[in-house]
Write a protein that binds this DNA or RNA. Structure first.
Lengths: 332, 332
DNA sequence: GAAAATCCAGAACACGTTTTCCTTGATGAA
DNA sequence: TTCATCAAGGAAAACGTGTTCTGGATTTTC
């Protein structure tokens, strides 16, 4: 045959070119065993000349590890999962680990399918994340698992979650430090745990400075606009509105402006999420709480790496958010 | 030792339990070779009893394939890459392929690192995507590659891209079918190829119905608002504005409303991207062009699967977008 | 100069599966 | 009866690496 099959070179090819055995070549390239420096160098040159890249499948097989972790997300289209994913990927790639993406689309059947696939790939660990902070059923696999954002219902599992309590409190503290004394709260559906937590924390930390009841609605600008009408009717003297999301806060700002109320001179507004497309496009730009989800993803990945290395940290970890101050409370 | 090391069962364990050899067990589970039905059944039961999951690393090694593809994205935080990712993942998981995620953060060094890692993992193929439609340097690997969204500069490479020409034209056609005769165009930076293409196509298909020059600016609501002021000064009689993005279109709508102009009665507005958080939250909701990026991702993955199977389809493929009509052109 | 210590490299094996080849026994036909 | 055919299943090789063991060669020491 004139056309030879082109094969990516293996360690045997490198060894042959360097005139040594395969095992010697392996030792040379991995800097182990006792070899003459001259031999090492010769093997190295041969490897470079052939463009040798070690086949990690071989390594995986013999080491018993796959250097891969799975990421199971119930909806990666959500804007919460994505920064978590990126943070995790960032932390993992530093450890030479690859991340395989599994989007279950909230379908238990797909989740089972992916779990089987990941187990069959002998993944070193699994990260489970979702779009809601409500606890979820743990998954049952013989592999280290860390939950991000959506904790496991089992308190012995490792879960990394956002501290919405602290986040909401920091917004209130900020407003009070600016002298605001009549604070209202507008947020999403009461059925959402995050709405409940943020509302409770807001009321708790505002104390007597809290006016009326938390207004539960939906996570939308429309609701934010509508809530302003309700609030101004019932609480005409309020001087600050904390919102459960940036979308709501943006709607609030829009409506206040339409009514001729100045933000923040008349009424200060805070959001939640630091979703840049909302927080920065709002007029005025929003003071808001950044959940630092990318950091959460990194943290999750590092906890998983620890668990893989044999030192698990059982139990939940809460990460505080960070308050980002902008014109909606500070003015220009 | 009282504590035995718990090992996930291998095919040898299954074989031992069923009283056959490993090779027979493999044949039984894979439905190949000639075996008595009774034997097959016995092996199957043994496998089930032990909870046997085949180690895909072994299969990968012996089959020469890894059943894994890499996805290289220059920024997966961008809202373009994500639907592409999801579509690709969807199409691949149907073929039992896993997708490993590599976010280069637009850093050539990281890209090199990831490429080496993917090659070393003997990935079956690679998808390359980016956030801009500008062509990019091809990557040099001995593996099938398909480019999505950002095509390769090499026309022989397989690239799947959006047909912005057709998309912009469909918006104009829609406006003209509604009787609009004085159409302006507001878009992003002239340095962006997608802005250029959309502008050229808009002018071309509008013909004499196009007024003035395309207004280049930035991809922001603020620019949309500002552009309205410019347009109304120079083209007081225009009856439609097509925008290069939903963000711009939302800004346009906001400013028109502030000036007391009715959308769409006085001036119809179209966006681009069908970015729901903009298109639906806009007042009124936007008629816009959906690039159908998830479908693009699926298409990309299927082309890659073909290439892996040995039937590559060289050259670029353009996918038409889909016009989504809403109140910003139709009214209520 | 011989024994011991040291150094170096190759052989063999492990990892888990698939696949190819081979053996055994049975059946049927000549 | 003998040979060819075929079903059934086992043995071994292959995939590509890392690790351990072993033995030969060289140097050191007395």
């Amino acid at each position: 045959m004139a056309s030879r099959i082109i094969r990516t070179p293996g360690i045997k090819d490198v060894a042959a070119l360097a005139g040594v055995s395969a095992s010697t070549a392996s030792k040379a390239l991995n800097d182990v065993g006792q070899l003459r420096a001259e031999t090492r160098e010769r093997v190295r040159r041969a490897a470079e000349q052939l463009g040798f890249t070690p086949d990690s499948r071989g390594r995986a097989l013999s080491s018993g590890r796959s250097f891969t972790v799975g990421l199971i997300t119930t909806d990666s289209s959500g804007r919460f999962s994505i920064p978590i994913m990126l943070g995790a990927e960032d932390a993992l790639s530093a450890g030479e680990m690859a991340l395989v993406l599994c989007d279950t689309r909230d379908d238990p059947l797909r989740e089972q399918h992916y779990l089987k696939s990941l187990v069959s790939r002998r993944v070193d660990g699994i990260i489970v994340t979702g779009r809601r902070v409500e606890p979820r059923e743990p998954i049952d696999v013989p592999i280290p698992v860390v939950y991000a954002f959506s904790p496991s219902t089992d308190p012995e599992d490792t879960s990394v979650l956002v501290d919405d309590h602290a986040g909401a409190a920091s917004a209130v503290r900020h407003l009070r430090s600016l002298g605001r004394e009549r604070i209202a709260h507008v947020t999403g559906p009461e059925s959402h745990l995050s709405a409940q937590i943020r509302a409770a924390s807001t009321m708790g930390s505002a104390g007597t400075a809290f006016v009326g009841d938390p207004l539960y609605g939906e996570w939308s600008e429309r609701w934010g606009r509508h809530a302003v009408d309700v609030l101004l009717r019932t609480q005409p003297k309020l001087d600050a509105i904390t919102c459960g999301s940036d979308q709501i806060a943006r709607g609030v700002c829009d409506r206040l402006r339409e009514l001729g109320r100045s933000v923040p001179d008349d009424i200060a507004v805070t959001g939640y999420d630091n979703w840049s497309v909302m927080a920065l496009a709002s007029r005025p730009p929003l003071t808001t709480v950044d959940m630092e989800l990318e950091e959460l993803g990194r943290r999750t990945a590092n906890l998983l790496l620890d668990a893989i290395a044999g030192s698990p940290h059982p139990g939940p970890v809460e990460l505080p958010g960070r308050l980002i101050t902008r014109e909606s409370t500070l003015g220009t």
